[in-house]
Design a protein around this nucleic acid. Structure first.
Length: 211
DNA sequence: CACCAGGCAAGTA
DNA sequence: TACTTGCATGGT
C-alpha cells in the first residue's frame, strides 16, 4: 500500500491549513517556524483581537508593538521583523495588492519569497501550497525524519532532493500535496518523534514510495 | 529537570 | 561546503 493511503486511512482528512484567509496562512507560516501550532493560534488570536491581521495594519504597526502581540509564538522579536519583511515584499513588489502577489507565476513567486529575509524553503512552499494553492510539495523536519527512518531518501538528503523525490512521483495536484504534507506532520507528531513510537504507526511496514 | 515544536540566518573553519 | 549557535514561548 502506498504511503499516502496508509496515512489517510489511519488519520482521515486533515483539512489544512487551519486559517480563514490566504493572508492568515502567510502570517501563520512564519509564526509556526520551529514552533508548536497551539502557540501560533494564541498569537493569531491576539492579532485578530487587535485588528492587526491585515496587510495595511501590519504595514503601519511598529515591530515592537507587533512583537508584543505575537509573544506566545516564541522568537517574537525575530518573527515580528520577518512578518514586516513579508509585508514589505507584498507592498514593494505587488503594489500592496495581495491578489497580485498570490496570482504571480509560481517560480517567480517562490524566488521572490525566498529573497525575503526570514523566509526559507519550507515557509515559502507552505505559502505557495496553502495560500496560493500551487502544486508545490512542502518538506519539513518530519518528512526528513520519516523518509530517513524508512531508508527512502539518501541519508540527510537536502530539501530540494526530497522535494523532487515526491514531486517526480506524484501528479501536480495541490489538493493531494495539501493532504499529503498534513498527513506526514500528523504521522510524525504521533509516531515519529526523535524517540519514535512505531507501534501502531500506519507506516510501520511501509517500504514502497509508489504514489 | 530535560526535551520538543509544521525554521532560518549568521558565524566559523 | 559543513557544522554550530541564537532566537523563546508553552506543553509534556
Amino acid at each position: 500500500m502506498d504511503m499516502f493511503r496508509l496515512m489517510l486511512e489511519h488519520f482521515g482528512h486533515q483539512n489544512w491549513w487551519p486559517a480563514d484567509t490566504a493572508f492568515e496562512v502567510m502570517i501563520g507560516a512564519i509564526l509556526t517556524q520551529n514552533t508548536n501550532w497551539k502557540n501560533v493560534e494564541k498569537a493569531i488570536a491576539n492579532l485578530t483581537e487587535k485588528e492587526l491581521l491585515d496587510l495595511n495594519a501590519l504595514h503601519h504597526v511598529p515591530a515592537k508593538i507587533l512583537a508584543k502581540e505575537i509573544r506566545p509564538a516564541g522568537y517574537y522579536n525575530l518573527k515580528a521583523v520577518r512578518l514586516k519583511n513579508l509585508v514589505d515584499f507584498v507592498m514593494d513588489r505587488y503594489n500592496g495588492k495581495l491578489e497580485e502577489c498570490l496570482a504571480d507565476e509560481t517560480e517567480d513567486l517562490r524566488k521572490g519569497l525566498l529573497s525575503v529575509k526570514g523566509i526559507g524553503p519550507e515557509t515559502a512552499d507552505s505559502i505557495l501550497l496553502y495560500a496560493a494553492k500551487r502544486p508545490v510539495f512542502v518538506i519539513d523536519a518530519y518528512t526528513h525524519r520519516i523518509m530517513s527512518r524508512h531508508h527512502m531518501s539518501p541519508e540527510e538528503g537536502t530539501y530540494d532532493e526530497l522535494q523532487n523525490l515526491f514531486m517526480d512521483h506524484l501528479p501536480d495536484d495541490h489538493k493531494l500535496f495539501n493532504e499529503f504534507h498534513a498527513l506526514i506532520v500528523q504521522t510524525g507528531k504521533t509516531y515519529c518523534k526523535k524517540r519514535p513510537v512505531c507501534e501502531g504507526c500506519p507506516l510501520k511496514n511501509w517500504t514502497d514510495i509508489h504514489p
